[in-house]
Design a protein around this nucleic acid. Sequence first.
DNA 1: TTGAAAGCGCTACCAA
DNA 2: TTGGTAGCGCTTTCAA
Lengths: 331, 331
Amino acid sequence: MADVAKLASVSLKTVSRVVNEEDNVSRVTAVAVQKAIQALGYRRNEHARALRQELGPRMLGLVTKDVSNPFYSAITRGIEDVVRDRSLMVVTGSSDEDGARERELLELLCERRVGGLLVVPTGSDHSFLASELAVGTPIVFIDRPPCNLAADTIFIDNVGGAQAGVAHLVAHGHRRVALVGDIPEVFTTSERVRGYRLALRAAGLGFDESLVRLGCHDSTAAEQATRELLALRPPPTAVFACNNRITYGALRALSGVPLRERPALVGFDDFELAALLSPPVTVVAYDPVELGRQAAQLICERLDGASGPPRQIVVFTELVVRGSGELPPPA
Amino acid sequence: MADVAKLASVSLKTVSRVVNEEDNVSRVTAVAVQKAIQALGYRRNEHARALRQELGPRMLGLVTKDVSNPFYSAITRGIEDVVRDRSLMVVTGSSDEDGARERELLELLCERRVGGLLVVPTGSDHSFLASELAVGTPIVFIDRPPCNLAADTIFIDNVGGAQAGVAHLVAHGHRRVALVGDIPEVFTTSERVRGYRLALRAAGLGFDESLVRLGCHDSTAAEQATRELLALRPPPTAVFACNNRITYGALRALSGVPLRERPALVGFDDFELAALLSPPVTVVAYDPVELGRQAAQLICERLDGASGPPRQIVVFTELVVRGSGELPPPA
DNA sequence: TTGAAAGCGCTACCAA
DNA sequence: TTGGTAGCGCTTTCAA
């Protein structure tokens, strides 16, 4: 900036005025300064600028399990949409369901002084974020609650959604309804299992441990688990899949079974091609973009100074009936 | 920091040493300083720090059409994976195929002084990025070339891939092969159309304008276009879909047609459930995660000082035969 | 309309 | 092992 001032034969302050488009600069001077800026390829140093005037937040951090999972990228999009007109941008990171990695990413983001944090948490302790929260950075948890920390959280109605899905299967005559899911340490899994049990109990059905296969981290494991379920004697007549990955795996396992022997299937999470499969897949659906939007809205309110105790928001689900969930049990 | 120094009764410099975990600080002093830091909730000001020592880039900007599209979120993931051990994070933005929005995002990123830019471009002029490039910020274009700017670019082998896909249909006896695609202004679309034409010519088949439906922005438009093609007399016996959205639309249109009358289908871009549909979908595949990885690698090399003229890298495709592309034409 | 000087919070350099 | 001082590039305040 000093160089520009020298070249344009004006003072530092005048250059500053031009750069910041302030008033009180004559046309001629302004043009001369512009020319000098061009000539030198000058660009204002944002750090020095930030040092003087306290400018608002420029970035929001977002840590999910995996950006490339459509569920999380939809959330990302929802957040982007909301913060867009505040000129905020989103920095993303994938934890791969690894608590240490999550912490690493979160600390990297804090170090970079993001204006707010959005987290689909995975770790078993988020107390390390307390100081960030204390310093005024808003933090919103998405889809799962934080551990050892009080913060805003957005949930899906996991229990209610699973309950509705399983009740739907029961209503279609199924008495042996299996469940395939991730490890029970994952909040959404345990909640959905809870919904499953509630639905069974409400129908007066017992809980059969052998019909529950947890611990499936990916669709391959889910496929395997589903095959094992099919091999049971007697096999389940219906399967409840706890999330989209699990549903994909279950679908692969089921695709080999003749239609009239095929167990009914209801999956938690909707997915793009669900209607095109045969039979089309009945799912417990909700809009992940909306989940992101709500989270962003919440963080924006905090950014605008909303104080008060941590809030919890629940996004409700909807059963989308397409066919796979209405298959009757074999006679 | 001055406050901390005062509270701990040490000099500013000593506090600085503790904060930066430098040597030459006695245990006792260090502990005292730590305590003062805790007490005051002190956090180092990154801007002031950056002002003094020239610390490397901390962020990379990524602008795509839409983060929530699995294709782009896979690219995002590939980039993340590569830059992860350099402690670089990725800031994302969605242009929605809008040139003005793209420019807005890119300028926002430049203003924020990201260490590098990755762009799946949409606009028709990227000359405004020349100054950023001149100042030393590496820029890598992904999937499509920039306009009015010379920069590193990573491509898919669009022509070769489309050619292989269409040749495959022809090899299965099809003479009336339709094409459904986005607007021809999209680089990948025009290239794929080129591959389509080359394959037809190589087979000695004429180019029939009425079998080409361009301008489909989304899967709904593609569904409609496919229906129109099916209504032709005589209808095409095979369809080549230019990208994943188009394939989804075509699938919806085709799903109502009885199997023995159904045209063969080959899609460009693989997708998760392609193998589960009936018939399973034959596609021209490549790994979008790899695309992101390569782009990140390129930008990292530039970050490490690699100079030299802009580079172009081509990622090759692979025909994945699953069934839909091998349906014979009706006798 | 323009400019001089102070100082934001930190680190580099040299001295003690 | 410690501390003082200069100065990074900018904006702010006040004076011309």
